[in-house]
Amino acid sequence: MNIVVLIKLVPDLVEELTIDSGGAGLDLTFARWIINEFDDHALEQGILLKERHGGTVTVVAPDLEGADDVLFTAAAKDADRLIKVKGDFTMANNHALARAFSAIIKDLQADLILTGVQAHNDLDGSAGPLLAECLQLPYVGYVSGVAVNDGKSTIRKEYPGGLLAEMEVALPTVLGIQAAEQPPRYVAVSKVRQAMKTSSIEELDASDLNPDGAAEIGRMFQPEAAAHAEMIEGSPEEVSAKLVGLFKELGVL
């Protein structure tokens, strides 16, 4: 089975976010690009399926700073093939990303394409369903379990409140992964270093990055909260004493 995992890199939200001088976009000059956390789950699910059914896992990522690390980490987790898509993806939206990746993924003869259900900077839809439509494949998102047999996949889709739907989806398909069946595995840095020596990254050129399908952004801003918490200050002992008082006042102690 050919499994392709599409990875999107996103600015790390732990870093301070600033708006650029134009006022309508993020200033990404010093952004730290990390793997979208749901894509990490998609990768884990892909590796789990390979362990269960055999086959290969191909990981495709856009050429942004940090892409090599992400790809070699995937290799250390036992991904077979690493592809970096060349092009200026810094400001590329998901419509452009999906079109560019579909041109490349089309040639990979994938049975199953996995990607994260969403990313925190999805302003024009999510990469998975956009890609599915470019490839004319079915799409199901919010998936937290995948089994494959007889040319079709049986998936578990999450609804609010813990309800799950079991669905059958014809292969090939694109699935938006919410959570892998087990937490993404940890790999030691030494294993990643070893992967850097033993595996290689193929570089493929993106076709034209066509962003049509997004709305124009007039301005971006940081939300001003209607209210802010009353901050309790002091040493841990002082804060604890105040909290104990508060719990009593609120009738839970």
């Binding site: 024009d124 399908g213 709305a215």
Partner: peptide, 23 residues
């Protein structure tokens, strides 16, 4: 932007060539 709507809106944007505003 849910398990239902998000499975549909992006696909329709690509299929119909219509712009999509997310979230």
């Amino acid at each position: 932007n849910t398990s239902i709507g998000a499975d549909v809106a992006s696909v329709l944007s690509m299929r119909l060539g219509l712009p999509l505003v997310n979230s």
